[in-house]
């Protein structure tokens, strides 16, 4: 562990250096070469825009609105995707039943659902949530499914020998914990895909606030420095989601895997 920590710290300094260099190069290109903030606002312009946006005080409202859209979409994807994935992974008949349908729907890009999202849900948070749901539900179904399919037979048989014989108990005590790493990976992918759908989902004006909504709004005003501010916020929140998975979920719920992977 001690050695790992030292290695991590060294990598972090190098990574930080790369960010500093990228900022410097960006500033140089913007100020010396392009000299036109509409094409490429400099980091200093972006920072100034950030300060004035904070003073206007709507950034938090935007974050809140976007998180609500995201939570609606991801929540529905979990509620629907996990049970379907479990049924398909556990019982061949459900697999045969759902598989063709899912394989037909899955390749449709989530954004292609936007017209129907508006018709079905109107210009509401649910419409944006629906687009995120479409993006998030398939990775969850597929990873849950393959997690349950991949439960080693010996675990199920060992459990049967120990008196765990009902399907419900086998799913709860054996298959679900055994499949959890795969389910968690699916949710992680779904979080990434769902977040990417967010900007487009807010594009068609489902709300007055929202990170994606504001990004389009400032583009229409040609305030490109503010556009960059919202791009960075979107990126940072996506990063936070990923960190939650990497440092919280993996360490607390999947700590039994430590030492197994290496």
């Amino acid at each position: 562990m001690g050695r790992d920590n030292r290695k991590n710290r060294k990598n972090r300094w190098l990574g930080l250096l790369a960010i500093v260099i990228a900022l410097a190069v960006w500033q140089f290109i913007a100020v010396v070469i392009i000299r036109y903030p509409f094409i490429l606002p400099a980091p200093t312009d972006v920072f100034a825009a950030f300060v004035s946006l904070v003073q206007q005080g709507t950034i938090l409202l935007d974050i809140e609105a976007s998180l609500i859209h995201f939570a609606v979409g991801l929540g529905m994807a979990l509620l629907i995707g996990i049970p379907i994935g479990i049924l398909m992974g556990w019982d061949r008949r459900f697999d045969d039943f759902f598989d063709p349908l899912i394989e037909l729907l899955r390749p449709i890009p989530p954004l292609a659902w936007i017209p129907f999202a508006i018709i079905w849900f109107g210009l509401t948070a649910s419409a944006a949530g629906f687009i995120i749901f479409v993006g998030a539900v398939f990775p969850i179904i597929i990873n849950t499914y393959s997690g349950f399919r991949g439960v080693p037979r010996v675990f199920v048989e060992a459990a049967k020998m120990l008196g765990c014989t009902k399907s419900r108990d086998l799913i709860r005590y054996i298959a679900f914990p055994a499949a959890l790493p795969s389910v968690a990976a699916g949710i992680r992918i779904a979080t990434g895909v769902g977040w990417m759908c967010l900007v487009a989902a807010e594009l068609f004006g489902v709300s007055n606030y929202g990170l994606g909504q504001k990004l389009w709004f400032f583009y229409s005003l040609h305030q490109m420095d503010s556009v960059v501010v919202y791009m960075i916020i979107l990126g940072l929140i996506g990063l936070v989601f990923d960190m939650i998975f990497r440092y919280y979920i993996d360490r607390h719920f999947l700590k039994w895997r430590i030492g197994e992977v290496a």
Partner: peptide
């Protein structure tokens, strides 16, 4: 007929539940 708690089994491969 079917498994029972009167019969215990130790498997050839590792069968411990790794999450417990």
């Amino acid at each position: 007929r079917g498994t029972s708690s009167k019969v215990g089994m130790v498997f050839q491969e590792y069968s411990l539940f790794p999450w417990r």
